[in-house]
Design a binder for these strands. Structure first.
Length: 564
RNA sequence: CGGACCGUAGCGCAGCCUGGUAGCGCGUUUGCUUGGGGUGCAAAAGGUCUCGGGUUCAAAUCCCGACGGUCCGACCA
């Protein structure tokens, strides 16, 4: 491709809505243009890079035995009603009506459609295991689209679904996909870390997320450098360090704490350490109020409460409910309430803590939880933060920011039961299919690569996904000899299957260098009269400072070796 | 959905407070110049100042509303 024929404009300034480096660079390098909030157009260079990522994903899916399909994006609401997600997906799902007033959704994911297909097409154990996938746009009505392709309303996702005879088979499929993911991210040049994750709304009981560490990441990941444990903050566990307040200091007594509500306020007011105050929260578990106690300096992780209460839907109680079952908000505590009370493990055995008195303006001090209240269970219930103790090896955890580029779920039979997707086993008995699902945000992966691989001059594309592998800069486009040699080299490279982008513009050299760096071609070849006077083309990797002179006869091979 | 800010040429911005001929840089076009890390000079094209209403002799500027965007928070396969 020649620049003078390409639809390619680089920008000196990034649009002001681009916040993170990868978004700025992809716009500036002319790969992406914004169509609307969370909606981006791929320019010729951008789509080439995306197609290369896609190709790698396809190859590895096929290698893992998955078969490609393609489902409609526009799906009848009935499918979603059958799984229950028409209700549970909420406003994040685009819904629309056709002219006959029938409801449709723009698929945000495709468990329903795949399961419905499996119900019809899979009828025998002989067909198992079966893994099918598609590469298709997905739609989500994001509250706040941002960061370009990282969080858009429309994005390209590879989604795969496995169907197995039983749990053991599903484990094998899960492992196959997990391994394929590791290979995919390695091949596209992305450093990812698989972390344990919560299963979220999609359901199921086991999950890994593939995270790319980045300062701009929207998720917190706790990891242990000692043993390699890594988990999403939503799910991370810890060994609770017991609090020191285990000596009985007296009977529980009221102290006046006028206008002091938040634990920090009470602590400051009374001169007590914050973690000696117990934070009491009233939550609704399937609409039924329960009380949860955590140390005053910690946050409840509702997902952990949900797990403890067998998957009950957890919501915060409104003020009126709190007043009715305990006391005025900000002054509540577990003493004397008739609610079920659950407490964080760190509170086990505490005998001298401060809790709300269920009376405006008063707290109770010297409270011994087991003496003065009834706690049903002590469990790990707080959101893990940096410095907490690794559940695997006992060393402190560190927290990093990350972006999720892929996820594997074991779904069990949630969807196959909803759709009654069964097969006949060896004995002729119908059995329910066991499922897994596996997603990769392909467009997000593309931008994550840029986020991870750039310098002050621009993008540094890994050769496997670069829109073109080689930039060939003709510095003297008016010099026929230079042009001729450059064209010969371009032909030689293309015959080796190497993509070449020729900068044949009548621009000054500096402009071409800057643009080649910005776009990030892995290898740059300069064709100019000065270079030829020194013996040939000047060749260098994007990551190198100095070029080397290479004779025209061997230039193609040298370039090829640099790309390997 | 709560709080803050913004909307002026393809991109980045000034002008608005104090109403009176719509500007600058980059990019684009033409000519000359230059020719190895975003040359220099000159000329030119390009705008319903987001939209609607109001105030006024007069609105990019003041007021009201809508829409769009950004940031913080909440939320989020």
């Amino acid at each position: 491709m020649r620049w003078t024929q390409a639809l390619l404009n680089t920008l000196r300034d990034a649009p002001q809505d681009a916040e993170i480096i990868s978004h700025k660079l992809m716009i500036r390098a002319g790969m992406l243009r914004k169509l609307g909030g969370g909606l981006y157009t791929y320019m010729p260079l951008g789509i080439r890079a995306l197609r290369k990522v896609e190709a790698i994903v396809r190859e590895e899916m096929e290698r893992a035995g998955a078969q490609e399909t393609l489902f409609p994006i526009l799906q009848p609401a009935e499918l979603w009603k059958q799984s229950g997600r028409w209700e549970t997906m909420g406003p994040g799902m685009f819904r629309l009506k056709d002219r006959k007033d029938a409801w449709y959704v723009l698929a945000p994911t495709a468990e329903e459609a795949f399961t419905a297909l499996a119900k019809n097409e899979i009828s025998s154990y002989r067909q198992l295991p079966c893994i099918i996938y598609q590469m298709q746009d997905k739609f989500r009505d994001e509250i706040r689209p941002r960061f370009g392709l990282i969080r858009g309303k429309e994005f390209l996702m590879k989604d795969a679904y496995s169907f197995d005879a039983d749990e053991a088979g599903a484990d094998v499929s899960y492992k196959k996909m997990y391994d394929a993911y590791v290979r995919i991210f390695k091949r596209v040049g992305l450093n990812v870390t698989p972390v344990e994750a919560d299963t979220g709304d999609i359901g199921g009981n086991f999950s890994h997320e593939f995270m790319v560490f980045a300062a701009s990441g929207e998720d917190g990941i706790l990891s242990c450098d000692a043993c390699g444990y890594a988990a999403n903050q939503e799910r991370a566990e810890r060994i609770a360090s017991p609090l020191p307040y285990t000596e009985i200091a007296g009977v529980a007594e009221e102290v006046a704490t006028p206008d002091q509500h938040a634990c920090e306020e009470v602590a400051k007011f009374s001169g007590t350490p914050v973690n000696q105050i117990v934070k009491s929260l009233v939550m609704l578990a399937d609409k039924k109020p329960v009380m949860v106690l955590v140390p005053g300096d910690r946050e409840l992780n509702p997902l952990k409460l949900r797990r403890l209460l067998n998957g009950a839907k957890i919501e915060e109680a409104d003020e009126a409910t709190v007043l009715q079952v305990a006391g005025p908000c900000g002054s509540i505590g577990p003493v004397g309430v008739t609610l079920s009370v659950y407490a964080d493990l760190a509170l086990k055995g505490v005998a001298d803590v401060v809790v709300g008195a269920n009376k405006e303006g008063y707290h109770l001090q010297h409270v011994a939880l087991d003496r003065d209240a009834t706690v049903i269970a002590y469990e790990d219930l707080v959101t893990v933060t940096e410095g907490d103790i690794c559940p695997k090896c006992g060393k402190p955890l560190v927290i990093r920011r990350g972006t999720e580029v892929g996820q594997c779920f074991k779904l069990g039979t949630k969807y196959s039961e909803a759709f009654n997707a069964t097969y006949l086993d060896e004995t002729g008995a119908p059995r329910i299919l066991t499922m897994g699902c596996y997603g990769i945000g392909v467009s997000r992966t593309l931008q994550a690569i840029v986020e991870q691989s750039n310098d002050e001059n621009g993008i540094i594309w890994p050769a496997a996904v670069a829109p073109y592998q080689v930039a060939l800069l003709i510095l003297d486009p008016d010099n026929p000899e230079v042009v001729q040699k450059a064209e010969q080299l371009a032909e030689a490279l293309e015959s080796k299957g190497i993509d070449v982008f020729i900068d044949d513009r009548a621009e000054r050299p500096g402009v071409k260098f800057k643009d080649a760096d910005l776009i990030g071609f892995p290898v740059r070849v300069v064709a100019g009269a000065k270079g030829f006077a020194k013996g040939g083309f000047e060749v260098r990797r994007r990551t190198e400072k100095e070029s080397t002179i290479v004779a025209p006869e061997v230039a193609a091979e040298t370039v090829q070796s640099l790309l390997a």
